[in-house]
């Protein structure tokens, strides 16, 4: 009788754990797959947008007026981010919500676009697109490409701060800020943030953006 009850309890416990584990794994895998799908969609949209920008640029050269770009919709691709040292090549998506960060690095709305005057903030999850951001050191280069400009940046600042510490500040000069969670290898919700600051490298911006060389103050 007792053995029968223990047998039932074991079966029930095993089945419960199996169901729970399978549910969690399917959920996580689903989130990753949806993120990958959205990243692919964003890359296709980015390629289309680049093609449209090239057409618009050709029209500008021919003095044909073009329509101006309006407000960027959340979820739309806004830039391409490449970091050779960690072999990162991702399309940056507008917004830093769960869905946007699941699909790719997110551009913080209200911040400047990379290459424009001001602080351009790009964030991503430590377990996804910025999983190797901790390997970057001062002096490493980053390349960005938007519809308006493209060029290279050099990392000039690297700091780890608490998740409730003010980290983002306005800048009169072009500035690129990459953020992710810290520690990168951490079980649970990471308590800190890794903040990388980069300044544009003079001479790499074809559109004539006013930049300063890294050594200048």
């Amino acid at each position: 009788m007792i053995r029968g009850r223990a047998d039932v309890a074991l079966r029930f416990g095993a089945a419960s754990l199996f169901i729970l584990g399978a549910t969690l794994i399917v959920f996580v895998a689903g989130r990753y797959l949806v993120g990958q799908y959205r990243a692919d969609v964003a890359r296709r949209q980015w390629d289309e947008r680049r093609a449209q920008a090239l057409v618009a640029e050709a029209r500008d050269r021919a003095n044909v007026p073009t329509t101006s770009v309006g407000a960027i919709a959340t979820g739309a691709p806004v830039a391409r981010l490449r970091i050779p040292r960690i072999r990162l090549d991702e399309i940056v998506i507008e917004g830093v919500g769960d869905d946007e960060l699941n699909a790719g690095p997110g551009h913080l709305p209200g911040s400047a676009l990379p290459g424009m005057r001001g602080n351009a903030v790009i964030s991503a999850h430590r377990d996804r697109h910025f999983s190797h951001l901790d390997r970057l050191q001062l002096g490493d280069t980053i390349r960005t490409e938007t519809a308006q400009s493209s060029g290279a940046w050099v990392i000039v600042g690297r700091r780890v701060i608490g998740h409730e510490t003010p980290a983002l500040f306005q800048s009169k000069e072009p500035l690129l800020t990459l953020t992710t969670c810290w520690p990168v290898r951490y079980f649970g919700s990471a308590p800190d943030r890794l903040i990388l600051s980069a300044k544009p490298i003079a001479g790499t911006w074809a559109d004539g953006m006013r930049t300063r060389s890294p050594g200048q103050t």
Binding site: V121, T165, L168, T179, T180, S189
Partner: peptide, 11 residues
């Protein structure tokens, strides 16, 4: 003076 976006994920 904003804090960094919440990139913490439980996945």
């Amino acid at each position: 003076g904003a804090i960094a976006p919440n990139t913490a994920t439980p996945l």
